[in-house]
C-alpha cells in the first residue's frame, strides 16, 4: 500500500504544482485588475463606468466553466480572427480565471469602499488633503482592510475552482487523481487529492488570518 501511494503521489504532486501555479497567477493578476475595475466602475466618466459595470455583470452572471470553454474552444471558431486565437490550454485557462475573478474582486472592493464612512472623506478634506492623498492614504488602506475577509474567502474558492481545468484537459491535481482512480480501480487517489486541496486551503487560511491580525489596528 505504501509503495502504491509512493508511485501514485508523484504525478499528483506534479498536478498540484499546476494547480498552485494557476492559483498564484490568477490571484496575483485578478486582485489588481479587480481593483482597477472598481475604480473604473466608480469613474465619473459615464462610458467607462458603464463598461466596467457591464463587464462585471457578464463575468459574474455566467458560469466560469462556460467562460473557460468559450476561451479554449469557442474563440478559435470565430470567423477570420479565430485562427489567431488558438491559445495554449494553460494560458487560456489562466486568462479565463483572471478575467472571471477580477469581476468578483471588483465587487468585493466596491463593498469595501461602500463600508467607509463619509466622515473619513470629510475629515480628510477639512485637513486639506487633496483627492489623491485622501484616496491613497486614508481610503484605500481601509478598503483593503475591510475587504480582507472576503478576499480570503474568495481565494479559497479559487483554489477549488482550479479543478475546472479538468474540463479543458489541462493536467492538474484532479486530472491525475481521476486517471489513477480509473487505471487502478481504487478510491485512494481521491482521498489524496482531497488532502492536498485541504493542505493548500489550510495554508491560505493561516496566511489570511495572519494578515487580518497584522492589520487589526487595535
Amino acid at each position: 500500500m505504501a509503495d502504491y501511494i509512493n508511485t501514485m503521489i508523484k504525478p499528483m504532486l506534479e498536478g498540484a504544482q499546476i494547480t498552485i501555479l494557476l492559483f498564484l497567477i490568477a490571484i496575483l493578476a485578478s486582485i489588481p485588475l479587480g481593483f482597477l475595475l472598481t475604480l473604473a466602475a466608480k469613474s465619473r466618466i459615464k462610458p467607462i463606468s458603464w463598461l466596467a459595470q457591464t463587464y462585471i455583470y457578464l463575468m459574474r452572471g455566467t458560469p466560469l466553466l462556460l467562460q473557460l470553454l468559450f476561451i479554449c474552444f469557442g474563440l478559435p471558431l470565430l470567423p477570420i480572427i479565430g485562427d489567431y486565437l488558438v491559445l495554449d490550454r494553460f494560458v487560456a485557462a489562466c486568462l479565463g480565471f483572471i478575467l472571471n475573478y477580477a469581476a468578483y474582486f471588483a465587487e468585493i472592493f466596491r463593498g469595501g469602499l461602500l463600508a467607509i464612512d463619509k466622515g473619513q472623506y470629510e475629515a480628510s478634506q477639512v485637513l486639506g488633503l487633496n483627492k489623491w492623498q485622501t484616496m491613497t492614504r486614508i481610503i484605500l488602506p481601509q478598503m483593503f482592510r475591510i475587504a480582507l475577509p472576503a478576499v480570503s474567502n474568495e481565494s479559497v474558492t479559487l483554489v477549488k475552482d482550479t479543478a475546472l481545468l479538468y474540463a479543458v484537459a489541462v493536467p492538474e491535481l484532479l486530472h491525475f487523481a481521476q486517471t489513477a482512480v480509473n487505471r487502478d480501480f481504487t478510491i485512494v487517489p481521491f482521498f489524496i487529492a482531497g488532502i492536498i486541496y485541504l493542505i493548500i486551503t489550510l495554508l491560505l487560511t493561516i496566511l489570511f488570518k495572519w494578515l487580518e491580525k497584522r492589520f487589526k489596528f487595535e
Binding site: G119, E122, A123, G128, L129, I138, F217
Partner: peptide, 23 residues
Amino acid sequence: MGMVFQHFNLFPHMTVKENLEVA
C-alpha cells in the same frame, strides 16, 4: 479653519500620533 466632528472621524488605521501627523 479646523473642524471637530460629532463622530470624531479619526482615521481608524492610524495610531493617535499618525492621525495628528498625517496631514
